[in-house]
Design a protein around this nucleic acid. Structure first.
Lengths: 163, 163
DNA sequence: CGAAACAGTACCAGCATGGTCCTATATCTA
DNA sequence: TAGATATAGGACCATGCTGGTACTGTTTCG
């Protein structure tokens, strides 16, 4: 469930990547979509689409023209996952019964309790808001997840294609 | 983003409804899909599909044969939104890079940090786990949302077709 | 034995997502 | 100034998933 879009996934990856490169160069590196495409393996047009969204949301600054590209505006610990998600997938809303829902809610019988979804959304929003890019950049493999498929509630990092 | 499936939405509505009816009758009422369809306005086959999932997950008990139907197994405050979501939409996993992803992750370059999505998922899981059906059943209309379309981040209880 | 009601599966339509392409615009360099 | 570079913005199409339906089987009551 709640499979967030690939675009968002890419976005996080790219933001983390840019942050890391930026760190090494200790300066504001300008990334072209071409370079990011190489670095990540994501096709160039798609990279463009992702970065466009991020830039529109203010997470990146775009520099047009020759020698142009994208520049990160904030450090990794200043950007939350929630922001990235919202930048690409729109507002965090769990139910389909959001404002635009003209005729979705004509099933009056089952509405009436719908407003309470807000609190669910808030909970999620807050949860996502607490995870920053810096968290996502933490040591890739050095996790307390041995190769034993612990599976608390599903899903181990990479192994588990066995199923 | 993260639009959870309608099925899940229906599920929550039905669970809440059954809980309320159960409360009034102070007993274990047996609900047929036909009745729930009437009560909620959701087409019968769809109701069946939803309840089947819930029953398979152990949230409901099914009684086959004549006079059969579905019976709620737990009270509203014992069932979390997370459980319902998982019952219908599968495990709560935000990224597409979950276990079954054989070739999604062959873009090795961008993987390596993917494991960290787990913590995000955990955060969400925990957030959703704290909201119970009882919470969702709270006073439908008595919310600090007047009839002015305030729309903080969308969605007012029942009005909203006005748009 | 027949009716009622769930179980399971297969099937189809609609729609959002993901990805591509094209054109316009801005900037740098020669 | 002219050309090259690179983003901005939007349109466009294909794929896959979701939502919904129908059909058949199985269980239980009367």
């Amino acid at each position: 469930m709640m499979r967030l879009s690939k675009l968002t996934d890419y976005a996080v990856v790219m933001m983390v990547h840019m942050g890391q490169v930026n760190d090494l160069s200790s300066g504001d590196v300008t990334f072209t979509t071409a370079r990011l495409s190489e670095d990540t393996g994501v096709p160039q047009p798609t990279v463009a689409k992702v970065l466009k969204g991020l830039s529109r949301a203010g997470l990146l600054r775009s520099v047009r023209g020759a020698q142009g590209g994208y520049v990160v505006e904030r450090t990794a610990d200043e950007v939350s996952i929630a922001e990235i998600i919202q930048a690409l997938d729109g507002p965090i809303a769990l139910t389909a019964c959001v404002d635009g829902a003209d005729d979705s809610c004509n099933v009056e019988n089952l509405c009436g309790m719908r407003g309470n979804w807000n609190r669910v959304n808030d909970a999620i929003q807050s949860a996502l808001g607490q995870v920053t890019l810096a968290d996502m950049a933490l040591t890739p493999m050095e996790f307390p997840v041995p190769d034993v498929p612990a599976r608390a509630h599903g899903q181990s990092p990479s192994t588990s294609r066995g199923a």
